[in-house]
Design a protein around this nucleic acid. Structure first.
Length: 432
RNA sequence: GGCCCCGUCGUCUAGUGGUUCAGGACGUCAGGCUUUCAUCCUGAAAAUCGCGGGUUCGAAUCCCGCCGGGGUCACCA
């Protein structure tokens, strides 16, 4: 049997990290089984429909490298894939249930008549789960506005779209008995169910859009790499058989098995994501990194190429959004905070300016050599000397390696900034 | 509250009756490297496996009870 999985986002605003989480598992499971992944848009709540939300979902998932085989944007032979475009189908199915006596009209809506029998299934990640029959009441399947309810639409579509494995969040466990009852009424064999744990926040509650970072677009803006986020998500509730921590989708597909999934709800610990993100940043080649950094840098680069400068921060950031603070002194002159300097700073800067002015052939070797000689001759404390320089050139105590930065900045700019810094220091002398 | 699910270091996890008084990773702390910050390297602290009973020669691993946490109870998905 051809494996068919699905992801069923509802377009209520943006791409949710929880959607991404289940998408990754559905995608990988389908790929592993050489099957298909269906994207179905669950837009039956007319009131909550937000425009642009559909695109946000596509953008978010695509960014992560998840592709689907059938969907509203892709087409496919079991379409349409927007539930709002399938109203005829639901109507027909609901009418059939009314005729067979499994449903009845109720104030403009159609309500399913529950048989009251116990419901049970063997969950692929949790094993046997059962609900007492009395739990499922008669529930509405067609709303009075002509739209189907969630539980009904899901079952009709999963049957029509020939879904073989329903891999979804744990919060759907309690919906399953209702859906099972529907399968039974239709006389159709239900698919396999696999209920993934729910992602939690630091308070151990289900991730929510109020107060938790759940928007994929926001992760992107913050400078997280899609590979890192995917890798991190794979590590929640699932672990590599060899206890590997850093791996990509290909390897996830290769090793995924549903029974290795944990049942307890993992906490989304951003610290570990940050660490992973740093690793992926360090693994980028300089050209790709420059391209990424460029998207997160506010100023225009005015003469200084990001490609030249980006390698200097490779080991220094975990998120791309941290890049700007480290790099902005390359393209905008610093506000030199005089109070940052030490007592020896005037002498350091004077020396540095003099020896740098002597350099004919501007390169790192020369800069290193000149500074080393001067430090030795004047018996400067190495760390203090460089700190004075760092502050004069950047206005900050934390920067990329200063000699490399000096070379990139260029002789004119460096000498000019040293001069400005010395002036500033002079002005403050009389003050005390 | 009813029903359902879950419970190994702060966090993510390995571990499915016996070289495990529990291994790895993040984080934390200490040290090394170092012109800052990082990266990198080394080391440390950190779970009496939620608790209490069983079963067994032997349990984190099996059973029962309790406690704790979470989810869900709509003409929302």
């Amino acid at each position: 049997m051809m494996i068919r999985t699905r992801i069923a986002p509802s377009p209520t605003g943006f791409a949710h990290v929880g959607t991404a989480y289940t998408a990754i598992f559905n995608y990988a499971y389908a790929r592993k089984g050489k099957g298909k992944l269906v994207l179905r848009l669950e837009d039956t709540d007319v009131k909550r429909k937000v425009k642009g939300a559909e695109e946000a979902v596509y953008a978010g998932l695509s960014w992560l490298g998840i592709t689907w085989d059938e969907g509203p944007d892709k087409g496919g032979k079991f379409g349409p894939y927007r539930q709002s475009e399938r109203l005829e189908i639901y109507k027909k199915k609901a009418d059939a249930l009314v005729r067979s006596g499994d449903a009845f009209e109720d104030e403009g809506a159609i309500r399913f008549k529950n048989s009251g029998s116990d419901m049970e299934w063997t969950d692929k990640v949790r094993g046997k789960i059962s609900f007492p029959g009395g739990e499922v009441r008669d529930f509405v399947i067609m709303k009075s506005d002509g739209y189907p309810t969630y539980n009904f639409a899901v079952v009709v579509d999963d049957i029509e779209m020939k879904i073989t494995h329903v891999i979804r969040g744990e919060e759907h466990i309690s919906n399953t008995p209702r859906q099972l009852a529907l399968y039974k009424a239709f006389g159709v064999q239900p698919p396999e169910f696999a209920h993934l744990p729910t992602l939690r926040n630091a308070e151990h509650k289900k991730l929510s859009k109020r107060g938790d970072a759940v928007d994929l677009g926001a992760f992107r803006k913050e400078g997280y790499l899609p590979e890192a986020l995917v890798n991190f998500l794979c590590l929640l509730g699932w672990s590599h058989p060899d206890e590997k921590e850093v791996f990509g989708l290909d390897e996830f597909i290769k090793h995924l098995s549903l029974d290795r999934i944990k049942k307890a709800g993992p906490i989304f610990d951003i610290k570990k994501l940050d660490w992973l993100n740093g690793i992926y940043i360090r693994n980028k080649d300089n050209k790709d990194l420059a391209h990424l950094v460029n998207e997160h840098v506010t100023n225009d680069v005015s003469g200084t190429s990001v490609e030249e400068v980006a390698p200097l921060i490779k080991d220094r950031v975990n998120k791309l959004s941290e890049a700007n603070d480290l790099l902005e002194f390359f393209w905008s002159a610093p506000q030199v905070g005089k109070e940052l300097f030490g007592d020896e700073s005037p002498r350091h800067l004077a020396s540095a300016a003099r020896v740098l002015g002597e350099i004919k052939n501007w390169n790192l070797g020369q800069v290193n050599k000149k500074f080393a000689g001067e430090i030795k001759k004047k018996k400067f404390k190495t760390g203090d000397f460089y700190m004075s320089l760092r502050i004069a050139l950047s206005g900050k105590k934390i920067t990329p390696p200063i000699n490399e930065s000096i070379v990139i900045l260029g002789q004119d700019k460096v000498l000019h900034r040293l001069e400005e810094a010395q002036k500033a220091l002079l002005e403050m002398q009389p003050a005390d």
